[in-house]
Simulated scan of single mutants.
Amino acid sequence: MKVLVLAIDRDDDFGKKAGVKGPVIGKGKCIDAALKLSLADPEDSDANVVYAAVKLYDELKKSGEFEDVEVALITGHPEVGVKSDLELARQLDEVLKKFPADGVIPVTDGAEDEQVFPILSSRLPIVSSKRVVVKQNETIETTYYVIYRYIKEILSDPEASKVFLGIPGLIFLLYGVGKLLSVSYPQSMNIISNIVAGVILLFIGGYAFTKGFRIQIFRALVNEFIQVIFGVSGLLIIIAGMINAYVNIDSYAIELLGKVPEPGLIKLILYIHSINTTIIIGIAVVLVGRIVQAYLKKDPHIWYNIAGLLILPTFWIIVDVTSRYALSVINFHSLATVIEISAAFVDVIFSVMISTFIRRYSIRWANGDEIETGAGDQEVRIAQEAT
């Protein structure tokens, strides 16, 4: 097994500070790059990442656990995000051309660099990982100096300043406006306080949600407008259906069961059964939006969404049959139930066949019909590159 020990510099400190262009391949070249960065900025921890990668490379070479080992450094871009990750992916492909590894061991100095792990795992398996933590000398690193240095870094880092300065600043701003309004309208103090608290929680919750799920709202609205519109429409359909089912649950229970059950498991199953159709319709609307967006962008992954849309009836049948069986409305010996289950099997077979055909067609379509129908090996290779 060939293993690549890979040092990662996502924000390209090597390029900005030391003029080192990635990728850097080989022990000697990596040590030279680390020395240049150490001389340019002795406090930068990225140099220690490369030293740690070289040390790990020597240990693996000495142990003989792998067939072959190589060490390399890839650098991203000062604009951390899509641009830096695309550059890292390009450099990784360049490294793999020179050293076709079977696995990779990434070496980083923090969580930010570790965000590129999905890029690595899409090319080759991650055998292990190593995070470098630089030790501090307590006699030198006084509390004042540490606080000063990190405050300085927060102020200079746009992403960190949004979290540590922007959000607290917004909270103080809203409370300040609320206090001023309460002076003029003291009788509305409770209303103003609730509004301010609601806006703060809404903003913090929305920011945390979008960051946690890596949702870039403005970029999505610009680049994936159709998908966003269909996604919001599908979500509204689901929410409306859930509210409607909750309001009319008693009348629905009388229609299906002939009585209103007590609150508990039976009523929960009845509620799930009542929202089944609405949820399927909402998901279908979302998938249609993704299909339209993929078609306009000529994305070969369009077949994923088409396959999901075709398999939705099976999901509806499964929920419908199991929930009605749990409510003792049907049994598995009745002809209607057998027909419904058979329809689910037919839908699965039909979806697999159609999806396989669409997958082949979408790959040829996305690549400008450059693949001939009989070129099986070439089709597989382009499919792997597309995924």
Rank of each mutant, 00 (worst) to 15 (best):
I8H: 00
D9I: 03
D11H: 12
D12K: 05
K29W: 05
I31S: 01
A33R: 04
A33D: 09
L35D: 07
L37P: 08
D41M: 06
P42V: 12
E43D: 15
Y51I: 12
A53C: 12
D58M: 12
G64Q: 02
D68V: 00
L73Q: 02
L73E: 03
H77P: 04
V80K: 11
V82G: 09
K83A: 14
A89E: 12
K97H: 08
K98L: 10
P100C: 08
G103W: 01
I105K: 03
P106G: 06
E112M: 07
V116T: 13
V116I: 15
V116Y: 00
P118W: 02
I119A: 09
I119T: 14
L120C: 07
S129F: 05
T142Q: 02
T143R: 12
E159G: 10
L165H: 07
L165Y: 11
G169D: 08
L174H: 08
G176T: 07
V177F: 15
G178L: 12
K179T: 14
L180C: 07
L181R: 07
M189P: 00
I191D: 10
I195P: 02
I200E: 01
I200K: 03
L201W: 08
G206F: 13
Y207M: 06
T210Y: 06
K211S: 13
G212A: 15
F213I: 13
I215W: 08
I215Q: 03
I217A: 12
F218D: 10
L221D: 04
V228I: 14
Y252S: 06
A253K: 08
K259V: 07
E262L: 13
L268C: 04
H273P: 01
S274R: 09
I281P: 08
I283H: 06
A284V: 11
V285E: 07
V286H: 13
V288F: 13
Q293M: 06
L296W: 11
L296P: 01
I306H: 02
T322S: 14
F332Q: 07
S334C: 07
I349Q: 05
I349Y: 13
F350V: 12
V352R: 04
S355V: 10
Y361A: 05
N367M: 11
G368S: 09
T373V: 14
G374K: 09
G374P: 00
E379H: 14
Q384W: 10
Q384I: 14
